[in-house]
């Protein structure tokens, strides 16, 4: 636990130092506030309407987590299917990989046509952006099993389900978490893109309206909130990883050791 606190402290220290440098830089170079406002101005802007900003943040969090959660569940189910079925591998996996090469952000307007301007298309876009990394890393993890581990299960006449539950899934967890850590960032990107395309709420929408009014400090408040949000979400997934994988090489330093 102490190492985690130490880590958080060092991250906060670096950010604080960057803010101080930024403030000093603005104070010396005096760029026009419409180009680059000082952190103190941005902070004051936030304090003027904290409830507005927090409401937009909450909306974006909701969209992001909904898209991420759906991507995690759907991605894992798809990956299990792909690993166990040649047919699914040939069809779904091939399609997914082909679709992945399309810049997915370009599909966002299509989702608005299909689903309207509510929260659904935003969740769908977040889901779509996050899904690939979940599927691809989970498939990789589920496949990377030591052949002798499978032989061990087979000599004891284990069922496919037992092999999946007791060997493949736990063995794939490090890889699955690697995919989830990428996915959470993509889900946030998806949520913002959704709000850009057709939104009336959320940090993406707030940035767009502030841009229309050339209100640079407000844009920066949203950007800093997004940065904070992205970081917190990433560390939440990493925290879940630490709790789930005390046995993994990458985590052994943190485990209460012998």
């Amino acid at each position: 636990m102490r190492s985690t606190l130490h880590e958080i402290a060092s991250v906060l220290g670096v950010i604080a130092a960057a803010m101080v440098l930024w403030e000093i830089g603005v104070w010396i170079l005096k760029p026009p506030p419409i180009i680059l406002p000082a952190p103190s101005v941005i902070f004051a802007e936030f304090l003027q309407a904290p409830s507005y900003f927090l409401r937009q943040t909450a909306y974006t969090i909701y969209t992001t987590l909904a898209g991420f959660g759906l991507a995690a569940v759907l991605g894992l189910v798809l990956a299990i299917g792909i690993v166990h079925s040649r047919l699914l591998e040939k069809t779904v996996y091939t399609l997914l990989v082909a679709l992945n090469s399309v810049p997915k952000v370009a599909l966002a307007p299509l989702f608005v046509i299909w689903m309207g301007t509510g929260i659904e298309p935003k969740i769908a876009i977040a889901l779509m952006l996050a899904l690939f990394s979940v599927v691809i890393d989970a498939v990789l993890g589920l496949r990377s099993v030591d052949p002798d581990m499978l032989n061990l299960a087979r000599i004891s006449r284990a069922s496919q389900f037992a092999i999946l539950r007791k060997i493949r899934l736990p063995n794939a967890l490090p890889s699955i978490f690697a995919g989830l850590k990428v996915a959470i960032s993509f889900a946030l990107v998806g949520a913002i893109v959704g709000e850009f395309v057709a939104g009336s709420e959320g940090l993406g929408f707030a940035i767009l309206t502030a841009q229309g009014q050339f209100d640079t400090p407000r844009v920066f408040v949203c950007l800093l909130l997004l940065g904070l949000l992205g970081t917190v979400l990433f560390y939440l997934v990493e925290g879940a990883e630490r709790i789930s994988l005390p046995w993994h090489v990458s985590q052994r330093g943190h485990a209460s050791g012998h």
Binding site: M149, L152, I167, W247
Partner: peptide, 13 residues
């Protein structure tokens, strides 16, 4: 039947 392999293939978790 039981089998022992060259590598122990113990499950780390």
């Amino acid at each position: 039947a039981g089998m022992v392999f060259q590598r122990d293939v113990l499950l780390d978790w």
